[in-house]
Design a protein around this nucleic acid. Structure first.
Lengths: 195, 195, 195, 195
DNA sequence: CTCTAATCGAGACGGTACGTCGCGTCTTACG
DNA sequence: CGTAAGACGCGACGTACCGTCTCGATTAGAG
């Protein structure tokens, strides 16, 4: 008796908790994961690593997240929504090349983080979170594309990340402008193509 | 002092071994993984599952593969090389839409297997093996594309698998011809585009 | 990086831990070994046997002892120190035959346990622990014996255990008094002999 | 069908085989164990170590001995019977101190081997084999000792080995004469004591 | 001097136990 | 008197040997 609470509830509940200690712990975990992601791929990071790095008790982790994937979800959701917040405006622009440039420039600024997210074991989760968020964007487009709607989003996200991952793996060999151009021509243009 | 053999050598060496027992065991492991892949995603399959399914001693697994990823590599390499063997001829055809149709038709025939490979935890490894094999294909193309060579292969494989995974996830809602058309227009055309 | 604690420290540290759970587990392991020792020789008892008998997780064993020998050490040390605690007073007596009788009587009372300890695979370890403890006894003897000091202890312990093991192997054919007499005459007398 | 032969028979049968190859192999195994015994205790020597040292196929071992203990038995039996062959004559002598000196001198000559046998994990087996052989010696003594017959042999062997092991552990600090004297006074005298 | 069968090396195999690790739960002791 | 620290049950990992077995390839020794 007096068992804590069903797992599923705890996480969501905690999300909107305003207890100062909880917030501090969550931020510590968040920051710890960020640091560790720059050292080794996500799937080689254990919950013990994270709690140790965050100087937080091991069991404490589970008061906030059910799994380490949940924490990564959180992290990914934040980063992606930040990215979208900054680049969405230009995404609405008619000029897709400007949008692509904005996107690439943003990623370039946070190159280290995005390298960790896209070229480590976290890529799969990041992709899913990205697609989820992309689906929520109200698309006030004039007209449907020639593609099935779900494929359009899945593909545009997947292919974009593909290009970005390739770019990030090459460190500094390709300029922001060049990759933006590639992105526009290789991924975006074919989708919005009205031919 | 008396360990049998260094790990790294064993796998490769064993590959060309002609000992009837080894071949039998390897095939049993291979078949077991195939069966299990249709039941649950790759990352939820333990080596113990595989050896149990193959009715093979647990330790025997390690006489053939260092990790279960190695076994999946083997499996993926075989399936991909079979796919390429059957679809490469048409890949050389000038008509890319015929190539795409051949590819999709092949995958459709082995739908169950490719669903397991592309929509489970095995996707990452499969992608890598696919790229490796694609890189070895002698490309007697008339001219270079406008893309950096490594991105061309990485992207064409990645984007193709993206489309195929979407297709396989939808079970039977989209016809072979339709997905081949999508593939051609969305992935191949932009790459070979001479614009 | 994140292993709980170095092995070597854990055991010793845990010994004085006051966590109720640890104490319970340790006692369960201890009792389990005692029970198993009466069924089969020490070297045929696996750690898995012990943890199963103690209804304790397998890995838990290693949170308390590095090897099963360590557990036996603990057990032996306890039994021996109990034996010495009860028989030491008479060992100081001038009358060695009384000492021997006390010793044999004590062993006779715990015949089952000591049979397991002396006639199974545990004999070697028990001997060593016995010697270690015997060496720590302050010997306020009037005078040195004619023997080198270390041999005196090693031999008296070894030879005594030899006689006891012979006795215990014969079940109930020899009386306590008889074996005490033999012990006195065969082992003790020659050592303290001032001839 | 065509199964080799029941284990128990094979060993004994092989013992009197005269096939040159078998003899060579047996000697190689014997010599290998001797060499390894000087490097590490018996219980840390695996059958694979032995066969590797003997440059003999792993399975070949089992064509000669069922277990490595069997091989050690063989070795111990040989060494002990050699020891007894050389020292028995003097054991019949009325002068026990001469006997002890002969024994100690013999052990001193083969110090390295006997150190391995008595201070490693082989001691238990050696003791048993020794007792077995000692029991077969026809004892044409004038009269029984005051001790039960089986204890007399068990104890004299055990206590003697105890003293020898102590001696061998001290490398070269104690002279042959001194240990022979100790042996005589500590072990032999009390047994034959007619008091 | 064959030739046939015993013996060999090599090592794969099914097992079993090892000690390690990380998981997610549960308990305890401390602040 | 609530929370962090961490002990716990669990189970997979990869390793080491065990003893059995199946292979050819020598190699005696009997004919």
């Amino acid at each position: 008796m007096n068992q804590p609470l069903p797992q599923s509830f705890r996480t969501e509940q905690a999300a909107q908790s305003s207890d100062a200690r909880m917030l501090r712990t969550r931020e510590a975990l968040y920051a710890a994961l960020l640091i560790l992601l720059e050292r080794k791929p996500f799937d080689q990071i254990s919950i013990r690593d994270i709690t140790a790095q965050a100087t937080v008790g091991y069991a404490t982790f589970f008061r906030h997240y059910a799994t380490k994937e949940d924490l990564l979800n959180d992290l990914a959701a934040n980063e992606i929504s930040e990215l979208l917040r900054l680049t969405l405006p230009v995404l609405y622009a008619t000029n897709t090349s400007t949008s692509c440039l904005a996107l690439c420039a943003y990623v370039d600024e946070r190159r280290k983080l995005w390298t960790a997210l896209l070229t480590g074991g976290a890529a799969g989760i990041l992709r899913e979170v990205f697609i989820q968020q992309a689906m929520r964007i109200p698309m006030e487009r004039e007209q449907e594309t020639w593609l099935p709607g779900d494929l359009e989003i899945t593909y545009s996200v997947g292919a974009t990340l593909e290009v970005l991952a390739w770019w990030l793996r090459k460190h500094d060999e390709v300029s922001v402008e060049r990759v933006a151009e590639i992105l526009d021509r290789l991924v975006i243009a074919p989708i919005v193509d009205k031919g």
